[in-house]
Every structure is written in structure tokens, then in C-alpha cells.
Design a protein around this nucleic acid. Structure first.
Lengths: 248, 248
DNA sequence: CGGGGGGTTGATCTCCTTCAATCAACGTGG
DNA sequence: CCACGTTGATTGAAGGAGATCAACCCCCCG
């Protein structure tokens, strides 16, 4: 918890770690300057809620580092995670007042925020932002649909394997490591959060992780540190094409 | 086999039934003219496949009338519907070669197609198209996420009620009828297609529909014609907020 | 030391799948 | 016109995957 409470001194966009992937990826120097005028950084601690469902949002922004979740809740308390926000992902919806979901930081997190109104105006003037946002939204839509297949048609073991393989691959691309052979990463989610993502109970998640460990598909050190000796084996367990033809 | 006739231009855009909701909704007269130059109509019969997953797409377009489905398939044959395309919905993804899903017409259907390359170029020049497409994509993303909650956390009865309420509401808005009190509509899907949408088997779908009928939540004439005497009752059964606060 | 959050494991129950029989509507050819 | 096959739908019986309820462990921290 004892983190530097001061906001990280604002980066220059120039050497921002997500410069080439975020909503500003296509902006020219001059457009960046306009963005910088309405931009500010916010830090969140692990577990902290960024926005409550239904709340009015006065900003949008990008995840710079750390991880957040998008969650939907029914009146009786059942919850379903509908999105996992990793660095460079966009938060918020231009053209709508309130948030439709709870946004929660699951690790310490830094966000690059833009005041909403000016950002929306900026979007109308600079097509580069709108174009990039469209591209990112289409990618998110694809991801959501891929997840619909997981939720609707995969069994518990396949669901766990699917989640692990997604995290492993995104982690690998983030650190610019090859996505073949062995992979090592830390789970950014508790068992309960995984259950919320997969439409399972945390007990089932725990059992299936144990089973995958027992069968040698994964190795565990502690509860969170995962080694995948053979990625294609994991993909098979996920029910996906083993030759990993992800040409996204 | 089937002749998919390319019709010239049955409609003028002016009196197109989806003029105010489709991707062209915000276009000025002059922009419409440019669109008309790359546009053509295609008819599909019920059951006909519009595009196969992985196929190269040389067009994008809008559903003018009829209904289509987006479906994903695993190697072992399990399928999950990931989208329901109603009139005014957009088909295809600018900036990507192939289709990620099977697109199938479930009723006779008319599409307003645009040749993909010129459409993409047009998009760069006319922000009105890109803006509208962004808006529609964000709506679809919301719908996909709502569906993730259905797939992940609702039981069979709630799933059926959710599907019926979605179809009922979209049908009502399409015909500009009030979405309160009683609603009457025809199911555009077979029991099997509903099962594919809901992540269930067709037997479970059949049983739950019978149960909802037995309990007076819906009335059936034949297999397809549905009357919902009390929409808020249906919403309750779906596990949704009964006061239907859909302020979308 | 106690307490609490996160995790694992066991026993039981239940909702949905699976397998299978039956039915109604429809078209087709003898 | 009727036997036949086909397609979509309903219903029943049996079995299983995952939920539920509950005990217990581990580790960190005040």
C-alpha cells in the first residue's frame, strides 16, 4: 500500500509506454499537444473502484499500467465480468453520460484521463482519434464475441484453459516475448475474479486449476505464478485450434 | 443452386426504410450520392449463407429487411451465435480482409451492399460515416456484453425470457409500437437457433418455452406466434429490472 | 496470539444435457 | 389420394457437470 502518493509526474506523450497502441496511437505531434491540454494522470490502488455502474462519467481515458475489470451485476447479486482492461485499453464511452458497468482496478493502476467534454469535441475535429477508437472498439467487439463462445459452449476445464491462454498471450505480446514454447506469467486475478469472468463458482475454478496442474498442463509456484510448458497443449485444452492460427 | 440476384437499385436512399438508423444515417445528400455509386442490393433466401467464416469479404453493408445471424463454430462442431442482425444493422468489418463468423440469413433478407474498398476510402473522407459506425459499434459492444451476462449467469428459464424480451422490444421499436403492456410478434428463429444463441440445447429451449406458456407468461399460437400479455412480468422472469429502465 | 482474506477440498444436490421416442405439418411421387 | 420421408418441435427417463454448503488450510499482519 505504501506507494508514492504523489501522482507520477506526467509523462511526456513522447515516451509514454502505450503511445503506439492507445487511442492516441495515430495522432500527429500537433494533435498530441491538444490532447495534452485536457489530460491528467490518476493512480488507483488494487481493489479500488474507478467508476460505479450508473455513475456519471466526466472523463474517459487509457490504462497506462496495471489491470482493471468491467463488471455487470444483477439485482440479486450475481455478477459477470464483461471486460478485462489491460495497458493501452480505453475506458469510457464518448457520447454517453453514465457508465454501464462497474470498473474496478484489480492491481495498482495508472490511468491517462481526458476530460470528457473537450475530448468529445476534439474527436469531431481530429479523425485520427475517432478512427483509432473505431478500430479499438471493433477489436473489443471481436474479443467480446470470442468470449461469448467461451461462456456459452465450453466446459469448466476449457474455460480455465481459455482464460489462461488469453492472459498468457496478452502478457507475452506486452513484454514482446514470442508466444510459442514455454510461457511464464503471474495471474492478475483472484480465483473469485476468474470465476466472475468465466461464469463459474470460485470452487470450480480452484478444482479445475488443480486438475490442470495435476495433468501437467501448467505448473504452479504459489497461487499466482504460472508456467505453461507447452502452449499448444494449453490451446488444445481450451478447445481452440492447436496450431494457434490467431492472425489478429 | 440459388440465384442471388444483384438488383440494381430498387430504392432511392431517400425513401429507404432504414435511412435514419443505418450506417448512412448522418450522411448529407451529397455524401449519399457518393455512397449510391458503390452500392447495390442483394437478396438472400431463408437459410442461405451470406458469408462463411474465413472467407474474403469484398463488400460490407446493411440489413434492409429480414434477419441474419452471426455464428462461431468450434472444430468439434459446437456452435454459438454471437450476434443477431436486424434491419439497419451493419455487416462486415472495415479494415479486415476475412469474416470472423458465419453470416446466415434466417429469413428472406435484403441487403444494401457497398463495395468494400471504395467504402473504406469513402470512410476516410466523410467523418459522418465513421462517426455513425463508431456509434453503432459501441451499441453492439454493449449488446454483446449484456449477452455475456445472460450466457454466464442466467439459468435456462431466464435465458429464454431474456431472448423473448429482446426480440419483443426490437420488434416493437422497429414497428414504432409502444414497448409497454401487451406485445405480439413472430419468432424469427427456430428452437435450434435459439439454443445456439442461448448456449442451451434445443430440448431445454422447448421445455422452458412450454413452461413459460404453462405459467401464463406468454401465449403461443402455432410454434412461432407469441403474445406477451405483460411485458414487465417477462422482464422479471428474465431477471432484469422490472421497471425496464432501458434508457439506451 | 487471533483474525481475516484467499485458496483448497469434500459431500451432496440440482439443473441441464443426453439419448430416445413421438408428433404435427408439409411436400413428393406412385 | 395416400404412403412415405423430412423437418421442426415436444416430451420422457437417466446421467453427469457444476453449484451449493461446509470444513479446513495457509499466510500475512496487527
Amino acid at each position: 500500500m505504501m506507494q508514492d502518493e504523489k501522482l507520477k509526474s506526467p509523462h511526456d506523450c513522447e515516451d509514454c509506454p502505450i503511445r503506439h497502441r492507445a487511442v492516441c496511437a495515430r495522432c500527429e505531434a500537433e494533435e498530441l499537444e491538444q490532447l495534452e491540454e485536457v489530460k491528467y494522470y490518476r493512480n488507483f490502488q488494487a481493489g479500488q473502484t474507478v467508476i460505479w455502474s450508473g455513475d456519471k462519467m466526466d472523463f474517459v481515458g487509457s490504462v497506462v499500467s496495471g489491470i482493471a475489470t468491467l463488471t455487470q451485476t444483477m439485482e440479486d447479486g450475481r455478477t459477470q465480468m464483461v471486460g478485462l482492461l489491460l495497458p493501452s485499453d480505453f475506458v469510457g464511452r464518448p457520447g454517453r453520460e453514465g457508465s454501464a458497468y462497474d470498473v474496478v482496478a484489480t492491481t495498482d493502476m495508472v490511468m491517462c484521463c481526458f476530460r470528457k467534454k473537450p475530448f468529445e469535441q476534439l474527436m469531431e475535429r481530429t479523425p485520427h482519434i475517432a478512427q483509432r477508437l473505431l478500430e479499438m472498439t471493433l477489436d473489443e467487439l471481436d474479443a467480446a464475441r470470442e468470449w461469448m463462445l467461451v461462456l456459452g459452449r465450453k466446459n469448466a476445464r476449457e474455460k480455465i484453459a481459455s482464460l489462461l491462454s488469453i492472459i498468457a498471450r496478452r502478457d507475452a505480446t506486452l513484454h514482446l516475448r514470442p508466444t510459442e514454447g514455454a510461457l511464464v506469467f503471474d495471474l492478475p486475478l483472484t480465483r473469485e475474479a476468474m470465476a466472475d469472468y468465466l461464469g463459474l463458482t470460485l470452487e470450480t475454478v480452484s478444482r479445475q486449476i488443480s486438475a490442470l496442474k495435476r495433468d501437467g498442463v501448467i505448473l504452479l509456484e504459489g497461487k499466482r505464478h504460472v508456467t505453461v510448458p507447452d502452449v499448444s497443449r494449453l490451446m488444445e485444452e481450451a478447445g481452440d485450434d492447436s496450431d494457434g492460427g490467431m492472425f489478429a
